[in-house]
């Protein structure tokens, strides 16, 4: 037998017999990795950018129980939930002048952490906060449409009152939006509990939600043009 001739060694038969298993496992692996890796839970959730001021929602909204709307005043009337102007910070945080006196009441008037706030107040230039929750520009989301219809802040933003640094906790994907649009009842609550992030429903949330849905006559649309216009 001429030795130059190429022969597949006998172990290739064992290899080819394993091929269906290897191929199946590789396919399953690829699909799983792709599905898990590309899902917004992996790519988006957990985004917690560093902010120019180490503002703690845990302190202000949690410990001091400031209502969300104390700062985010436009949320009930506008599509955009406004980041408060420096002026709102000044309600409680005014810099002390050379004599140590302040214009209005002030906590931590000499704090270094608050320097960017004081600078902004002096110069009039806004603080450049990093946006945490950002929908794609082709999705039209209106805060007022949700907040005045029984959808709480916590549904999309999570327990901000427990976050030292605000992070994204929900995927904010289209499927996630549709989950609620298709079956809103479990996500609805009475309007006077909208901004109460630690609210625990007295009854099953479906029952309460169904009642709210009934009272407000809610019938959320799942049409393309509802969000893409």
């Amino acid at each position: 037998m001429p030795s130059e001739r190429f022969h597949f060694p006998a172990w290739t038969n064992r290899l080819t017999r394993l091929l269906p298993i290897i191929g199946g496992a590789a396919g399953l692996y690829a699909v799983t990795i792709l599905a898990l890796g590309a899902s917004p839970e992996t790519t988006d959730v957990g985004y917690a950018p560093q902010q120019p001021v180490p503002f703690s929602h845990k302190l202000h909204a949690g410990q001091l129980k400031l209502d969300c709307r104390y700062c985010h005043t436009t949320v009930e009337e506008a599509a955009h939930a406004a980041i408060p102007p420096t002026q709102t910070c000044n309600n409680c945080h005014n810099p002390a002048d050379a004599n140590g006196s302040v214009a209005t009441v002030s906590v931590h008037p000499n704090s270094e952490k608050l320097l960017p706030v004081f600078e902004s107040q002096a110069s009039g230039a806004p603080i450049k906060w990093e946006r945490v929750h950002d929908l794609p520009d082709y999705a039209c989301f209106n805060h007022s449409a949700h907040v005045t219809r029984g959808v709480s802040c916590v549904s999309c933003h999570g327990r901000v009152d427990q976050m030292e640094v605000v992070q994204q906790v929900e995927p904010l994907s289209m499927a996630w939006c549709l989950d609620c649009h298709r079956e809103p009842a479990p996500h609805l609550r009475p309007l006077d509990r909208i901004a109460q992030l630690d609210w625990v429903p007295e009854e099953a949330s479906e029952v309460i939600g169904a009642r709210v849905q009934e009272e407000l006559g809610l019938n959320p649309s799942t049409n393309c043009s509802t969000c893409h216009r």
Binding site: I33, T42, T43, D44, G46, Y47, A48, P49, D134, Q167
Partner: peptide
């Protein structure tokens, strides 16, 4: 990859979202 994914899911990140 599964370890990286698990890590990304379990932790927060200051880096921009992956798009």
């Amino acid at each position: 990859p599964p370890v990286l994914i698990a890590q990304a899911r379990a932790t927060t990140s200051e880096k921009p979202r992956i798009h």
